[in-house]
Amino acid sequence: MIRWEAPLVAPAGIVLGTAIALATLMLMMKGPTGQGPYIPPLLYGSFAGAVVMLGLTAVTDPARAALRRETLEG
């Protein structure tokens, strides 16, 4: 169950983070250049993939340790 939760929550974080970053970058870039920011798709995809992998690791490792502890004590 925990392994399914992380991939479901990560896209929400990616979308919210992208929206906040774009809102800020649009204001910063429109003034001096008159254009919006350019985000290379491959770079964006690699960051999104890293977010999903870090989310899985951040959830899976503590859950596995807690299950081991429960098994040893129980």
Rank of each mutant, 00 (worst) to 15 (best):
M1I: 13
I2D: 13
I2L: 13
I2Q: 07
R3D: 04
R3S: 07
W4N: 06
E5D: 13
E5L: 14
A6Q: 07
P7I: 04
P7H: 05
P7N: 01
P7Q: 03
P7K: 03
L8S: 09
L8V: 09
V9A: 11
V9N: 10
A10V: 06
A10C: 07
A10P: 02
P11D: 01
A12D: 12
G13I: 07
I14K: 01
I14F: 02
V15W: 09
T18I: 03
T18K: 02
T18Y: 02
A19T: 03
A21G: 04
A21V: 00
L22S: 00
A23W: 04
L25W: 01
L25K: 01
L25M: 05
M26W: 13
M26V: 15
L27I: 13
M28V: 04
M28L: 14
M28I: 06
M29T: 01
M29R: 04
M29W: 02
K30C: 14
K30D: 06
G31Q: 10
P32L: 13
P32I: 14
P32T: 06
G34C: 11
G34K: 13
G34W: 05
Q35N: 12
Q35D: 14
P37T: 06
P37K: 04
Y38K: 10
I39D: 00
I39C: 04
I39M: 07
I39N: 03
P40R: 13
P41Y: 08
L42W: 05
L42G: 05
L43D: 02
Y44M: 15
Y44F: 15
Y44K: 15
G45K: 12
S46V: 11
S46G: 10
S46R: 15
F47A: 00
F47K: 01
G49W: 01
G49E: 02
A50L: 14
A50W: 04
A50F: 07
V51N: 00
V52G: 00
V52F: 04
M53R: 08
L54Y: 08
L54A: 12
L54E: 15
G55Q: 07
L56G: 02
T57C: 14
T57Q: 15
A58F: 06
A58S: 10
V59W: 04
T60I: 12
T60D: 11
D61C: 10
D61H: 05
D61G: 10
P62K: 04
P62F: 03
R64I: 08
R64P: 03
A65N: 12
A66L: 13
A66Q: 12
A66F: 09
L67D: 15
R68W: 06
R69D: 15
E70I: 02
E70Y: 03
L72Q: 11
E73P: 01
E73L: 05
G74I: 02
G74S: 08
